[in-house]
């Protein structure tokens, strides 16, 4: 498989998952802030934590003077300048899909194209204003349909493995961020304890946003405990959005690409992925929270990034200089060669 194609497939799934998880993230915030009645000052701070968790606080400040539900959702959903907004993610996903259209099923392509056209339509903007829940639901459903089509229509070849790596790396990262939205209430060290009824509502909202509510109930009943929420989202063996589950998927997919056995590694990406799986396999919630869960999540995210970079270095790095994007684009456009869209005599 062409390196460039592998690269695009990897980012295609990453961006779709990113859009989906951003929708989940705002959704949980909306649920939290509607359930709770904060004092005037606290409201903005809460919204800001959402921007912080996406790592784009500086950019946000340059674009918006005020921190409010309105500016934050605009920034995370429609802002073109924010490379991680839902709109930007879906645009990137679609751009990558266009480059590899010949490699994916037409159903998969049409779904990502539909989602892209939807998020750029006036209807999407109207929904954010009138029924935000519905908007996030649509983004989530579109992304889930995409995942389903990926599983149901794609040949299990190398490209599919790269898509699996991208999807699960992104998902592991975002599940941890979903949890991290609540870090303001956590102790500096040790497992967070339930603070109040409102606090428990917050933990429940996190579960729902991760589509983990039913899974949690079937395992633990309806009583919400922070420790169990962390358990299911970080360390579950069976819940498909848990960090451990995703790390194992990444590890397996990487080994299938190279054919390396489970107890060996043949490149940096496999080494790092194998280590992370071992760490998550032999950790408890207490271990994750030893230095405070917020710090634990930070360090996890750094490891996921390192795996992503190692994948790039191993399989995708091209050893020659790429021309500037602008220059390349200009020349691409110049190649008209006699397009059908031109003049008659």
């Amino acid at each position: 498989m062409l390196s460039r194609v592998a690269h695009s497939l990897y980012w295609l799934t990453r961006y779709v998952d990113r859009a989906e998880n951003t929708a989940r993230l705002i959704d949980v915030a909306l649920q939290l802030y509607l359930d709770l009645r904060p004092t005037a000052g606290a409201r903005g701070d809460r919204w800001l934590s959402l921007v912080e968790s996406s790592g784009e606080e500086a950019l946000f400040r340059t674009l918006h003077a005020e921190v409010s539900g309105l500016t934050v959702t605009e920034f995370l959903v429609f802002q073109e300048e924010n490379p991680n907004s839902i709109l930007s993610s879906l645009t990137q996903a679609r751009e990558n899909a266009r480059m590899v259209r010949d490699q994916v099923s037409s159903e998969l392509w049409e779904e990502i194209n539909r989602l892209y056209l939807f998020i750029r339509s006036p209807q999407a903007r109207a929904l954010l204003r009138d029924a935000p829940y519905e908007l996030f639901q649509q983004v989530k459903n579109g992304a889930l349909l995409f995942q389903g089509l990926m599983d149901a229509t794609l040949v299990r070849n190398e490209g599919w493995l790269f898509m699996r790596v991208g999807r699960n790396l992104e998902r592991a990262d975002k599940t941890s961020r979903l949890l991290d939205v609540r870090h303001a209430t956590w102790p500096p060290a040790g497992v967070p304890a339930p603070e109040s009824q409102e606090d428990l509502l917050g933990w429940a909202a996190v579960l729902r946003s991760a589509s983990a509510w039913e899974a949690y109930q079937s395992l633990y009943g309806t009583e919400v405990s922070p420790e169990r929420v962390i358990q299911i989202l970080m360390l579950s063996d069976d819940f498909p959005r848990s960090v451990r589950f995703c790390a194992r998927e990444v590890n397996e997919a990487l080994r299938s690409i190279s054919g390396a056995p489970r107890d060996r590694f043949t490149n940096e990406a496999e080494k790092l992925a194998g280590r992370l799986v071992a760490e998550l396999t032999f950790s408890t919630v207490e271990d994750l929270c030893a230095q405070g869960l917020h710090a634990g999540i930070d360090s996890l995210q750094a490891k996921l990034n390192a795996i992503g970079e190692a994948v790039f270095g191993t399989y995708i790095d091209q050893s020659f200089r790429l021309p500037g994007d602008f220059e390349l684009r200009q020349q691409e456009e110049q190649q008209q060669q006699d397009s059908p869209v031109r003049d008659l005599p």
């Binding site: 259209r101 684009r329 691409e332 456009e333 397009s339």
Partner: peptide
Amino acid sequence: TPGPYNAAYFEHSYLAR
């Protein structure tokens, strides 16, 4: 192909597929 910014990119990827 010149790349995805080319007007005929759809055709290129269509024919390749």
